[in-house]
Write a protein that binds this DNA or RNA. Structure first.
Lengths: 203, 203
DNA sequence: TGTACATCAGTGAACGCGCGTTCACTGATGTAC
DNA sequence: TGTACATCAGTGAACGCGCGTTCACTGATGTAC
């Protein structure tokens, strides 16, 4: 890992980290291989030792973004206090992951964007953790605790995902172009409205 | 409107129409002013008589796409037979516009994409018809007929929009890159699941 | 009806830019004996 | 411990490309008298 000479040490990691910075601040459209190489201080062609094409690099970023999203959902779920009846608690855990999803999108709209950007390149690895997996677990937990009828379990993940993903894209779309206020005060009320509606639909 | 000479006749309309073709088949990213001019048979700079920049042209396309979406919602709503109790009918009209929204996205994913693409340019005109307006009307109608409690009316448009918009983006995202089968057989089941959930949440 | 003239909608060449990717190459590293 | 050599990770120059936009200009159109 010796830095500073002809060999960089860990160029692959440096590329991903630098690319992540660009994506976070300016979006995936602003990402260019040449600029990345310039920033790191390496020739453009060096990047091609590590990624066969720009699209492969973007696919790596996309995977990473989805994993970060899933991790923030897990963190929110695990922050719910383990008190009171188990059924109610399972619902609160479910609410927490939904809120975390939308808040992640609002906090890092560019990251959220790249997480679900269509790609012609397959993901370089399976997601771990996976947001979908976290969601399914939460719903199974609610069903097991009797918080929702078992008959709802099959459709519930899709319904929940559609609701939170829909609100996320609506809110981030209005935020992306103008870059105005980072946190609109009406956001929380909208989040509550959608989360409540999702839960109502599951009963 | 004389065609064929030094003057084109109606270059603005030709630009919008040609651009629409490109967007429909290859997406807004594939749209370039030079290519458009080439297709129409006019010099690139001629386009700048009608649109101050590429972004202004895209904004015009985006508005047009949103209006087409709204029109297809209206058409679906008005195709619901005027039979049976009025409350039930208002619900069926509401369902129809939600289905139409998602089906529009599936049928024309590129058009749906450009309809909600973030833009740095303000819309050149107010939407007419407006999908949001159509949705709000449908919800007001349900409330007036007693199909849903009045207390739900305030949040209902956001909740419904989040659900159908979310499913639309989920389904089109998986369809955009690979361009595989145009109509997945599981789509209708997913649409049903989400629409049913939205209605359940409004009761 | 004819003509001068303003206006509008085009032309064509150029500016300035940067991109992704490839290719023959070279400098550094590690390994076998 | 020293050395030959394969391998790996870089370099630097170039290819081929196309873009958005501007600018001085010209050809066609319509209008006033």
């Amino acid at each position: 890992m010796a830095k500073g000479g002809y060999h960089h040490g860990d160029l692959e990691a440096a590329l991903v980290d630098s690319a992540m910075q660009v994506v976070l601040s300016d979006g995936v459209g602003a990402l260019t291989v040449r600029d990345l190489a310039r920033t790191i201080g390496v020739s453009p062609s060096a990047a091609y030792r590590h990624f066969p094409s720009r699209d492969h690099l973007v696919a790596a970023l996309s995977l990473r973004a989805r994993e970060e999203l899933a991790r923030s959902m897990l963190a929110a779920r695990d922050a719910v206090p383990a008190t009171g009846p188990k059924a109610g608690r399972s619902v609160r855990r479910f609410e927490a992951i939904g809120r975390a999803y939308i808040r992640f999108a609002l906090r890092q709209p560019r990251l959220f964007e790249v997480a679900f950007a269509p790609s012609s390149v397959p993901p370089p690895a399976p997601e771990h953790p996976s947001a979908w997996g976290v969601l399914v677990d939460a719903i199974d937990e609610m069903a097991a605790m009797g918080a929702i009828p078992a008959a709802r379990s099959a459709d519930a993940p899709l319904v929940a995902w559609a609701g939170v993903h829909g609100l996320s894209t609506i809110l981030t779309a209005s935020k992306l172009p103008s870059e105005s206020g980072l946190h609109h005060s009406g956001d929380e009320a909208m989040i509550d409205a959608v989360i409540d509606a999702v839960i109502r639909s599951l009963r």
